[in-house]
């Protein structure tokens, strides 16, 4: 292992940062998911308060805008009783010419325990984790087109809850895989969970050229790609894919790849439909499927809070043990 995958683990294989799902073992992912489930009440909602991070300071460093991810990290930290500081860097120091490195050193001096980082440059959380003083945990909340590991973990949690062990499942990811950090992290996570059949479905302009290397089969036709799958993961389509001439129109995308009730029939009966949100109705998904019984999209959001609680608790606990 190299880079982010290596840096996030201690020599004993414990999680001290979460930078990527690449290289995470099935045992470690399972431990994370079990911890996340322990934060869910019997009604399936995240517990309202746990004292695990009392006295700890979590700093949300968002260099790129985000509403949902930031909110769920906020909620997760609060529920663990941490003090939370949220910095919208776009409107503060970075616009005054302060470098990321200097921002970081300043925050470190303020005795933070955990950084949650979102950044437009792939590798930025790795850079931070590499440079911060030991015993500050770093959680990647999305970097460039590189990784979004907590999203992948909440997806795995949702898959496991509804369909069981991914080692027995076929999973199809539909849409803009090429520009998606969600897709990359989910692929690594599924491979870690020994999922035997991972597929990517989309036009050539939206699939990366080296899916073989990631252990993923590429499909340009959705009927072929969906045949017999247990899990369908739709990705959000960004408007700039049209302006950069990768796609003609949203309408054409929906006509070729939009998830409709008819298309759902290609998959295995009872297959679930997931989406990292926010969904574009009539682009990636029809109203009927979005509001239908096979969609588990809102469940993903709920699981997102529990997963983020688990990741925060686990990384801070590892860092504490490293100190003592």
């Amino acid at each position: 292992m190299h880079g982010p995958a290596a840096l996030q683990l201690t020599s004993e294989g414990r999680l001290k940062h979460l930078l990527t799902t690449e290289g995470l073992s099935k045992a470690l992912i399972t431990e994370l998911l079990n911890t996340a489930e322990s934060f869910l009440s019997s009604q399936g909602q995240p517990v309202k308060k746990a004292p695990l991070l009392r006295g700890k300071t979590v700093v949300n460093l968002f260099f790129e805008n985000s509403t949902r991810t930031r909110t769920t990290f906020d909620i997760a930290a609060h529920r663990l009783s941490a003090d939370v500081v949220t910095l919208d860097i776009r409107t503060s120091s970075a616009s005054k010419g302060e470098t990321l490195f200097d921002t970081l050193k300043n925050l470190e001096a303020m005795q933070a325990d955990l950084f949650v980082v979102r950044h437009s440059a792939g590798g930025a959380p790795f850079f931070i984790a590499n440079r911060v003083t030991p015993n500050i945990a770093v959680i990647n909340a999305g970097d460039g087109t590189h990784a979004h590991p907590t999203q992948a973990l909440l997806d795995l949690m949702t898959i496991r809850k509804h369909k069981g062990d991914p080692a027995n499942l076929s999973v199809a990811i539909v849409g803009d895989v090429k520009h998606s950090r969600v897709a990359r992290s989910l692929i690594h996570g599924l491979r870690g969970m020994k999922c035997p059949d991972i597929r990517a479905i989309g036009p050539g302009t939206l699939l990366p050229g080296d899916l073989d290397h990631l252990g993923v089969r590429a499909f340009h036709r959705i009927d072929h790609g969906l045949a017999g799958v247990d899990v369908i993961v739709l990705l959000r389509l960004q408007k700039e894919r049209m302006t950069s001439a990768l796609l003609p129109s949203e309408r054409e995308f929906f006509n070729l790849y939009g998830m409709t009730e008819d298309r759902l029939k290609y998959s295995r009966p009872g297959a679930i439909v997931m989406h990292p949100g926010p969904i574009n109705r009539g682009v990636e998904i029809s109203n009927e499927v979005a509001d239908g019984p096979q969609a588990v999209i809102l469940d993903q959001v709920t699981n997102g809070i529990a997963v983020r609680m688990a990741v925060m608790a686990m990384t801070i606990s590892t860092q504490q043990d490293l100190v003592s």
Binding site: G3, G122, G123, G144, T145, H146, R184, P208, D210, L214
Partner: peptide, 8 residues
Amino acid sequence: YVGTGLGL
């Protein structure tokens, strides 16, 4: 595959 994997 390296650049793609690193999201660069």
